[in-house]
Amino acid sequence: MRNVFLKIRQYFNLIFFLTLQVIACYILFHYNRYHEAVFMGVGGEITGFINERYNNVESYFSLKKTNTELMEENTRLKNLLKQNFDIPDTTFLAVTDTIRIDSVEQHRKYQYYSAKVINNSVTSQNNYVTINRGYAQGIEKDMSVISPTGIVGTVVNVSKNMATIMSLLHSQSRVSASLKKTGETGSVEWEGNNPQEITFKNIPKSVIVQKGDTVVTSLYSTFPPGYPVGVVNEIAEQPGSNFYVLKLKPLTNFFNVQYVYVVKNLHKQEQDALEKATNK
C-alpha cells in the first residue's frame, strides 16, 4: 500500500497532467449543442457582457454599411406595401376591415424579432454568433436566424438576455435548401475550410444548373421558405454518383453581420406534436 502511495507521489505531475487532459478532451468531445447550457451558464453571461461592451465601440466602424443594407431592405419592403398596387377593376373595392380581431394574424406563421450581433467568429471550424436577446425577450431554442441579405443560423442556447446561434459556418450545421429556378431540394453544409464557400449536396444531375443560380431555403426547412441562402459559384460533378456537389457563396456576409432577425415559427409546436404522434 505504501508503495502505491509512493508511486503516486513520484508520478504526481504526470498523473495530474493526464487528468486535466482527459477532462479537457472529455468536455470537448462530449460537448454538443445540447450540453452547451452546462458549460456556458454563468460564464456565458460574463463573456457576453464583455462582448457587448466591445461591440458598442466596434459597431461604429461598419455603421455606414449597415445603414445602406437597412435602407435597401426598407426599399424592398416598401415596394410590397398594399397602397403601391392599383386595383383597375372597380367592381372589387378595397374595404378597411373594422373587426377588432385581425383576421390575418390568425394565420401568421412566422414572427420576427430584431437583434443585434454582439459577438461573431468565422475563423474556427465551429462558429457561433452571439446576439443581445434572450428568453426574457422571447427568444427560444431552435428558432432560425436570418440577416437582411441571407440566412445566418439556428439558436442553440439561450440565457436571460443573450442567445448563441450556431452559424451556417459550423460543422454540424445542415440546412434544407432548394434551387430557386427549378425547385430541387438538397442540403447545405459547411466543409469547415473557407468561410466564403458552403456546399450544396443532393441535387440530381438531370437538373440544369448554371453558375450564378440562386439557392433559397426550401419549403421543409426551419427557415421561412424562399429566403436566399447563396449563389452557385462552382459546379463539381462527382464521378460515379448521380448528384452534383455545388459550391455556393453565402449571401450573408459573415465577416460583418451586424443586425439579424430571429424568426419564430408559430406552427412549430403543433407540427412537431403531429409528426411525433404519426411516427409512434
Binding site: L20, Q21, I23, A24, C25, Y26, I27, L28, Y31, E36, F39, M40, G43, G44, I46, T47, N51, N119, S121, S124, N126, Y128, T164
Partner: peptide
C-alpha cells in the same frame, strides 16, 4: 469561454 470551444484551448 470566449470562443465557445470547451476544452480545446484548455487541452
Amino acid at each position: 469561454y470566449f470562443t465557445k470551444t470547451p476544452g480545446l484551448h484548455a487541452a
